[in-house]
Design a protein around this nucleic acid. Structure first.
Lengths: 208, 208
DNA sequence: TGTCAATTGTCAGCGGCTGACACTAGCCTC
DNA sequence: GAGGCTAGTGTCAGCCGCTGACAATTGACA
C-alpha cells in the first residue's frame, strides 16, 4: 500500500512529464521554458528541478522507459542464443509491448512525436546519442557475461554492440524521416537492415 | 597577402582557442567560465562569442581540424578501393600527418589531453557523438557516389559507415582509457579492431 | 587625411540551474 | 487526536551561458 505522500509525488512527476512532452511537441523544445512547464502544472520552477535534473532529462524520460526495458529484455534471453541474435530478438520483442508501457504515462502517438523532436533538436539528439553509448556499454557487459568473456580483455562484445547500435541508429533515422511511423514499419526496417550489414561490409556493392 | 585586420583576427581566434584548451585541460571544462577564457586573452566576453558560437565549439575546435581532413582524405581515395578499405586507409593516413596540422595551433600533447577531457565530460561527449553522426552522413554520401548508388534508396552506404564509426568509437574509448596515448597505439588498435568486426558478428565467441 | 566599414566593448536582459532558508503538509508516536 | 518530526514546497538571490542593441574604436582605402 502506497502512502499519500508517495502518490502525490508520483502524480506531480507524471503531470510534469506530460506537460513537458505536450509543450515540447507543440511549441518545440527550445521555445519551451522550464517556467512554462512548471506553470502548466501549477508548481514552482524549483520544484521542477527537484523531479528532473534538467529540461533535457524531462525530454528524454519517455525514451528512458523504453531503453531500460530493452536492457532487461537482453538479460533474459536464452543463454544459447548467439549474441547478435539475442540483441535483435530483444528489440523486436520490446516493440511488441511498447504500447502498454508508454500508454501508462502518455498516448503512444505523443511518444512517437516526441521521438521526432529529439531527432530534430541538436542538443537533444546529442544527449540521446550519449545515452545510447551508456546503454551499449551496459549491453557489452551483459554479452560478455553470457559468453564468459572479460569485457576489458576481449573487444568483441563492445564491437558487436557498437555495430548493432550503429545499425539501430541508421534504422531509427530512416524511420523517423520516412512517412510510415508505425511500429510495424520500424520492425520491418530493423530486420532488413540487420540482414544487410554483413554483406555491406564484405561484398562488392557494384555486383548485385 | 593578408591584411593587418585579418592577421589580427586570426591571432585573437588562435589565442582564444589556446587559452580555452589550456584552461579546459587544467581546470576542467565545467569549472572554466567563458569569462576566464576572455580574460586570459584580455578580450571582452562578447568578443569570445563572436569567434566561437559557444564554449562547446571552442572545446571541439581541435577535433574539427582533424575531422575535416578525414573527410577530405576519403574523398581522395582511389575509386577502385573497397568502401571499408577506403575509410580505413583514410584514417590511418590521417594520423600520419596529424602532427603538423595540430602543432600549427597547439602542442600535440595538449590535443591529446583535450581529447580525454571530451571523453570524460558528458556534455562534450554528447556534442562529439552528434558531430560524428554528421560526419557519418557526409561519408555515406561520399561512398554512395563512389559506388554509383543512391544514398536514400540503398541503405548499404549508411550501414557501412555506421559500422565503421562504431568501431572507431570503441577504439577511441579503449585508447583514451588505456595507458599508451601514442598515435602508434591508436593505429595498432584501429587495425586490430577492424579485423575483428566481421568475425565478432558471425562467429561463435566460445570456440576460439 | 578624411571617410567608410569592420571590430570591439558595454550594457541590459533572458533562460537554465543551484544553494539557502523558511513554510507547509503528511506521518508517526504517545 | 495533539504533538513533534520530517519530507516536500515556495521564495529569493545569484552564477553562468548566451544574445541584441548601441556606442566607441580602429584598420582600409580613396
Amino acid at each position: 500500500m502506497e502512502t499519500l505522500r508517495e502518490r502525490k509525488k508520483q502524480r506531480t512527476r507524471d503531470a510534469l512529464l506530460r506537460a513537458a512532452v505536450e509543450l515540447f511537441t507543440t511549441r518545440g523544445y527550445e521555445r519551451t521554458t522550464v517556467d512554462d512547464i512548471a506553470d502548466a502544472v501549477d508548481v514552482s520552477q524549483r520544484t521542477f528541478f527537484r523531479y528532473y535534473a534538467g529540461k533535457e532529462e524531462a525530454a528524454l524520460a519517455l525514451q528512458e522507459l523504453v531503453v531500460t526495458r530493452f536492457v532487461a529484455a537482453v538479460r533474459e534471453r536464452p543463454a544459447e542464443e548467439a549474441p547478435m541474435e539475442a540483441l535483435k530478438q530483444a528489440v523486436l520483442e520490446g516493440w511488441q509491448t511498447l504500447n502498454e508501457v508508454i500508454e501508462a504515462v502518455v498516448p503512444v502517438e505523443l511518444y512517437l512525436r516526441m521521438y521526432r523532436v529529439i531527432e530534430s533538436t541538436p542538443v537533444l539528439l546529442a544527449a540521446h546519442l550519449r545515452r545510447n553509448m551508456e546503454i551499449e556499454e551496459a549491453m557489452a557487459r551483459v554479452l560478455a557475461e553470457r559468453e564468459g568473456l572479460d569485457v576489458e580483455a576481449d573487444p568483441r562484445p563492445r564491437l558487436a554492440v557498437a555495430v548493432f547500435g550503429g545499425v539501430m541508429r541508421v534504422t531509427e533515422r530512416q524511420w523517423s524521416t520516412g512517412e510510415d511511423f508505425s511500429l510495424e514499419a520500424m520492425r520491418a526496417l530493423t530486420i532488413s537492415y540487420l540482414e544487410q550489414v554483413g554483406p555491406a561490409l564484405t561484398e562488392n556493392w557494384r555486383t548485385r
